[in-house]
Computed example of a mutant assay.
Amino acid sequence: MTRLPRWVPQHFAAVRALLVLTAVTGVLYPLAVLAAAQLPGLNDKAEGSLLHDGDGAVVGSSLIGQSFTDDEGAALPGYFQSRPSIAAGDGGDYDPTASGASNFGPENVVDALPDPGLGWEGDEDAAKSLLTQVCERSYEIGEREGVDGSRPYCAESGDGAVGAVLGVFRSGGVTGEATRAVSLNEACGSVEAPFLAEYEGVPVECAEYGEDYAKAVVTPVEGDAGEPEVPADAVTASGSGLDPHISPAYAGLQVDRVAAERGAGAREVAALVEEHTTGRFLGFMGEPAVNVLELNLALDEAYPLS
């Protein structure tokens, strides 16, 4: 009797294992997970945690944030505002297919100034630093909510705010007396005068586009701003850019504006905020948070805009 080569039964065993594992992991396991996902209490999460308006139409997911702005990007005054979402989608529109962070770190404090003939919108090489973005948002939110939008290392400049950062030239390179100081985030022609008149006895200059300031010591200026009234989550995006939550502090900052716009009492609106505030996971992990989309849906139901 002729015996089959040793490799033949080995290959048959491999094929059988492939078929069995394909059936178990590719068919039976997914079907079991699908069946479990239909159980009460799990089916909503399995379908994407979808939220519906009063007419039953799907308006979003409780897991993904949304922007409550008009076509020009201005905040709608009758709605609570979400966190920034700069890196998620074009212009920060909470695009779940473009989730990501800016990857800017705390040392990202110097703007890449635009060509004066092109401006910020026209110069693709121009970019605002993380610090300047935070400063701009803080002052904008402060103006919108009627509070002080100043914060350390930020300075009012022109019609907005910039990171208060100097490029200081010193006699010994990185040490010694200051011989020259330049406001790195304020381009000449965009401001009447730098945010600081002088530094260590040296007049502060505006920044000339195209000039090399690489030999200057980058020096952030703290200023005299105290504890910021605008919370950190109001001016910074989450790691994914999709976070649907804001802090209770940021929600509380917006109560008066939303209540006035909807003709409701501030106490009633604050009570809705409290209803939609979740505590720490297991009582000690994370921070309390407010789901903005769920809160705004509750507002539309309780106090519809006229």
Rank of each mutant, 00 (worst) to 15 (best):
R3I: 09
R170Q: 08
E274A: 12
G263V: 12
Y250S: 03
S82M: 01
E47Q: 15
R267P: 01
D90V: 12
L31S: 02
K215T: 12
V235L: 02
S190R: 09
A197S: 15
A251G: 00
K45A: 15
H276V: 06
L242A: 10
L50V: 10
R144K: 13
A264W: 07
S99A: 15
S49Y: 13
V168M: 06
H276M: 04
D90N: 10
V191L: 12
G149H: 05
S183Q: 11
A264Y: 05
A161M: 08
I246K: 00
E287V: 04
G149T: 04
V273P: 00
N185T: 03
G122M: 14
Q254G: 05
S238C: 06
A98G: 03
G41Q: 05
A75L: 02
L42K: 08
V109L: 07
P40L: 00
A88T: 09
A57W: 04
G163Q: 05
R83H: 05
D159T: 14
V202E: 13
P40Y: 03
V258I: 11
L34A: 15
Y139E: 07
S171G: 04
V24F: 13
V24L: 15
D95C: 08
D212V: 10
G119P: 08
E211C: 09
V255P: 04
A87M: 08
T219N: 00
H52K: 15
G78A: 13
G265D: 10
A127P: 01
A75T: 06
V255Y: 10
N185H: 05
Q66R: 11
L42H: 13
E208H: 11
L293Y: 01
G252P: 10
Y213N: 12
G265L: 02
G26K: 09
C188M: 09
G263R: 13
S171A: 15
C135W: 06
A237K: 04
G163V: 05
R3H: 13
V24I: 14
E186S: 07
V204D: 07
A271C: 02
L50R: 15
Q81P: 01
S129E: 08
P304D: 01
V20S: 03
A207D: 09
T69P: 03
A260R: 13
A164E: 05
V269W: 01
A126Y: 07
N185C: 06
V273C: 02
A127Q: 14
I141P: 00
V58M: 07
Q81W: 00
A46Q: 11
L293V: 07
G56L: 05
S82P: 01
P304E: 00
G78L: 01
V109S: 04
G172N: 10
G286Q: 04
V221G: 00
G92N: 10
D300K: 03
